[in-house]
Structure formats: C-alpha cells, structure tokens
Design a protein around this nucleic acid. Structure first.
Lengths: 339, 339
DNA sequence: TTGTAGGCGTTATCAT
DNA sequence: ATGATAACGCCTACAA
C-alpha cells in the first residue's frame, strides 16, 4: 500500500518560498511573538500559496505535548453521543483535539485504548465503559501515567477520576413527582446490566421507602434499549396487571414501553403515567412528550473537561464526583392518578 | 497544560534492557524477518516488562505511511454508524486504523477534515457528507493528493470515489411489493434535503410510472428524522385523507409515521401499509416489525474499503459506484389492500 | 544476524 | 528579529 503519491509541503518549502528560516515559519504558525509583521505576512501568504498545514505528528513528537484527548465510547448511546459532542466544544475552546475510538461487538475496549495510547494522547476519557471493575483497573494500568477519566459509570478506583450525574437523586425526583400526583402503585423497569442500573434501581427503592411506599415497590426485569422496554411492557400487558405509574431505567426503555402501550390501547397518561431518565432529544417529540429526568450532557461534559485540564496540569485524581441531576422535565406522559 | 509527567518508555529503553541495538527492536516490532528467535524473545520480554508500545507518531513520520484512514460522519445516523462499525472490521483485517472525526452543529465538515489532514491520514472517507457539491469540491481540494472516498451521497466529482446503494432500484422494490399486494394509492414521504433524498424521490416517481400509476403519485414533504415522519403523519390525519400504502424516505421517518398512526387509531397494516428504507436494527423490533429495503451496511463498507486500498495503491478515482440494494425485507407493516 | 548513521517535520535552545 | 543546530522516537538504508 503506497501512501501519499505527491508529498504535502513542509515548513522547509514555506521557508524557501518566503525567503526566511524554518524557525521563523515555526514562530509564525505557533502564534508566538518573535516575528515582525512583514515576515509574518510573507510566511502566511507563502503557506497559503502552497497549501501548507503543520504536521501534527511531528509537532506532537517534538514538543512532547499532543494536545489530543482520547475518547472511548460505543457510538450507539444517544446520551453518550450528546456528551461527546459537548466535549468537542470544550476542546475547541481550549485548543485541543479529540481522538475518538469506538468499541463495537468486534472491537474491544482494550483495542480502543491501545490505539489511543499508541498515538500518545495526553489523557483518555472513557464514556460509559462496560466490563468488570477489575478488568477496567487492569486496562487503566497499561499506561498509569496517562490521566484517565471515567464518565457515566461508578467506579471505586482511586487512580482515576469518575464523573456521574447522581442517579439516586434523579430517581428521587421521578418518584417524588409521581407521588405528588397521587400515585402509589409505582413500578420500576430495571436496566439489568446496563451502565448505572444499580444506583438507579436502589434510588427507586430508597425513594419509595422514603415516601412510605416500601411495600408497593416492584422491579421489572428489562434492559437498556427500546426493545427491552417494549418486551417488558408486552409481558406486563400479557399478565393483565398494570400499575398506575412506571419509572423506566432510561428514555430508550420508556420509549419502548410507550410504543407497546399505544399499540395495545393502554393510554398514557390516562391509564398509566410514564417517566424516563436522560431527556434525550427524542423525548421532546410531540407524539412522545416524555416526562423525564434531565441529565445535562453539556454540564457533565464541562465538568469532565475541567477535570481533564486539572489532571493535565498535574493534579492528582479526585475519585468519584457526583453532579446533581438536572430538573425533572414534566411533559404529558404523566398525570394525576385516575380517581 | 503540562503533558505526560513521566515519559513512556522508548525503543532505546527496550534496547538497553534487552542488550541489543535499537534497530533490532524495530525489526522485532515490525514483525519482519531478520532477528533470531532468542533475540526476538528477549526484546519482547524486555518490552513487556517496561510496558513499551511503539510510538505511532514517530513511526508514521519516519516511514511516511500512517496506516490511518480518516472518517468524517455525524454520529447520529444509525445507518452510518453501522457502516463505520463495519469499516472498523475491514480496517482491522488489513492492519490499518480509523481516525474518526465528527461533524456536529458546532463542528463543520471543514474542521473535521482539517484535523484529519493535520494527522496526515493516508485517505479520507466521508460518510453522508452534507453541503453543496461545490462546497465539497472546494473542501476536497484542500489536499488533492489525499484519496477521497464519499459514501452514501451522490456526487458528480471525477476526483473522488463515490459509493452508494442504488436508491432508485430500492424504491422500485418497495413500490413493486406494494403494487403486488394490490395497492394503487401509494404515497411517498419525502426526505427533503437529507442525504440521497433526490434519487429516492425520483425512484418513487419512476417506479410508480413504470406500474402505470403515474397519476396516483403524491410526494409528502417531510425530512429525515423520526420527528419529521411524525409531523407528516399528523398532518395527514388532520387532513382526513389517507392512502392505502406509504413509502417512507427511510426507516426513521417510517417509525415516526408508525408512532403517530398507532396513537391515533390508524392500524398498520390493516388500514395503511408502511414501507421504510435502510433496515436499521430497530426495524426488526417485534412491535415495529417494519417492511423495509435492506442496504447492507457491511457490503457497502466492504466495497468502500476495497476502493480505499485500490486508491492507496495508486489507482485513480473511479467516480460513482452503485451497489445493488439488498432484498426487500418483508415484515408485518405491509399487507394486501383492504377490499 | 546484528549494528551504525542519517533523516522524517517539527520545536527548543542558543547564537547573532 | 532572525537563523543555525540539535533532538523528539522511529525506520531505512547500509555496513559489519
């Protein structure tokens, strides 16, 4: 595989055309003082004429600073996509780049990390990484000196920073809203092994207990996808027993529930109120209009990028950091309990 | 921002520990012949002990071959995500890496491309790029020597390779299926400015004409998202006039139509048959079960990666390449016309 | 099979 | 303000 037939112009070419030394070209392109206005203009116009762009590899190699932050994610979780998009904006603002590395059925987190490491990223952010805590610890140990930040997952690892929205508090918002509407039969559609399923489940249980509804709890096994929610709703309808309100592990699951309910004549919110979690963009669509717990992807991203910069400046990892859940977004999927 | 507190080990460290020269370490890590078995083992164990991994930047810089293929995409289109995942597998197979560069509301295609160019990717694949043909041409001209491949978009540019599934043929499949079921009032929900909306629309029109239904055509303005489909369906219901069959620009739009229909008592397929395009994973969910035109993301990805390798070997661009649409996947959203 | 020398494109350092 | 020189980590010669 032969690469790059005709090589792109280098600093040397620009210097020759502008009639200056290579150092001056470097000075101009780094935007540091030390070049007169006239030379700066000459260099810039020579570069434009040649279509010159500094080689990031050489730059990073020599300057020992890549200004690249690695990101691992699955690319299928809407909330994670939102977070990553917001991270891009923060990166832009602070003059660094994001190197994206996907995990798929065929590409392990380890492969994703190794690619990032080989490129000598300055730090790595893992968004919703799956796998056991010990597997992850082993993975992070591949390069103990590269600051590691984990987003949207609980981890008891002192060597990394972990950022999460407080799920337990979020569930309290959801349950509290339904209780305020007069509901007592509030069931929870569980996220099984999905990211942060455990804290959300226990958030539901403790919220119910706090409202003295501890004996009315019911956790329905499900999953994290629309298909999971649909399957659970179908099972519910087959059983013939419905609560007056449902809290779903996340918006996707809630959508699945809504889909099946509407196809089986169960009216939302007249018959059953439904609450989600995440407030993904789709939740605002007129025909879904889902009451849900906001997670503020942009705030999470902002806090993450602050931590990254602190770590890059040499600060030690601070362990787990919990962000308050956004407000509950009340839409038309919830209503007072039918009397 | 200080980077990398304690520098990662280099070839020099490995060579010293193994008691060999640096070139031997290089030989071992490139996997080329020229090192004895014992040396190889010594080098490998020294590297393992130090946690050494070759520096991709230095490697790429010196060898003048990055083995990196750049990809631009939006990360929100399920079909594009599928294609990219499949591209990852092909890349793995052929020993190169994918450098992902997202475009978002805040990140233009130009920014995405520039990042890839700065990293000196060997080639760039654009998946479903938006923007006018002339804007794209200008963008591709930034680095005329970097092979450019465009996927899922029509382009009349001789300087790039373009790969697409034949939309017109796909629409013929969809319309033909409905005609076979006895439908004559077949309306089309249009994709507006979305990727390949034009060929699909004209595919619909010519298919209808081919079945002598040219006077029964109706193109409903919509868009490319679930929300667009929902809005169009709502307008249809408000108007009180429904066809017996609908072909949607893509699956997302079809889902939006299904959502609204089920919430307004329009039964699918008893009252209206609905056909999508793409066969995204969600189309197979039991409660949606959408009849749709398969696009075979993996075949498209495979063809793309073949073209990339050809271009990297010096082959000239071949212009537009049309792949046959996959079969029509018949599910329960279509049925014979009610008599 | 092994080692030495030079350079990829850039930045850092030190002259002028 | 400008330029020469060395070095970043690696690979490609070429020599031993």
């Amino acid at each position: 595989m032969a690469d790059m037939p005709h090589r792109p112009p280098t600093m040397r070419d620009v210097a020759a055309l502008a009639g200056v030394s290579r150092s001056l070209v470097s000075t101009v392109f780094r935007g540091v003082p030390g070049a007169s206005e006239t030379t700066r203009a000459r260099v810039l116009s020579a570069a434009a004429e040649l279509g010159y762009r500094p080689d990031a590899r050489a730059r990073s190699l020599r300057s020992r600073t890549s200004r690249q932050i690695g990101i691992t994610l699955t690319a299928v979780h809407p909330f994670h996509v939102e977070v990553t998009e917001a991270l891009h904006e923060d990166a832009d603002l602070h003059g660094y780049q994001l190197a994206l590395s996907w995990t798929t059925k065929a590409r392990s987190l380890r492969q994703a990390v190794e690619m990032l490491l080989d490129q000598r990223c300055s730090a790595i952010i893992h968004i919703g990484p799956t796998g056991s805590e010990s597997d992850l610890a082993r993975l992070f140990d591949l390069a103990p000196d590269v600051p590691t930040i984990v987003v949207d997952r609980y981890l008891e690892l002192a060597s990394v920073d972990t950022l999460r929205v407080d799920d337990t508090a979020g569930l309290m918002l959801a349950v509290g809203h339904l209780v305020g509407l007069g509901h007592t039969d509030i069931w929870y559609v569980d996220g099984a092994e999905y990211v942060s399923a455990t804290p959300r489940r226990s958030g539901y249980l403790s919220a119910m207990a706090a409202f003295d509804l501890g004996q009315a709890t019911r956790v329905l096994p499900s999953g994290g996808t629309r298909a999971d929610g649909a399957a659970t709703a179908l099972a519910l309808i087959d059983d013939g027993a419905l609560p007056t309100a449902i809290v779903a592990y996340n918006d996707q699951v809630a959508f699945g529930v809504l889909d099946v309910f509407s196809r089986h004549g169960v009216r939302v919110p007249q018959d059953v109120s439904v609450v989600g979690f995440d407030n993904v963009p789709e939740a605002a669509l007129p025909h879904l209009d889902l009451t849900t717990v906001e997670q503020h992807a942009d705030r999470l991203a902002f806090a993450t990028s602050e931590v990254v910069r602190a770590r890059l400046d040499g600060a030690p990892p601070r362990g787990l950091q919990l962000l308050p859940p956004g407000p509950l977004i009340v839409r038309s999927s919830t209503a007072p309990r039918r009397t």
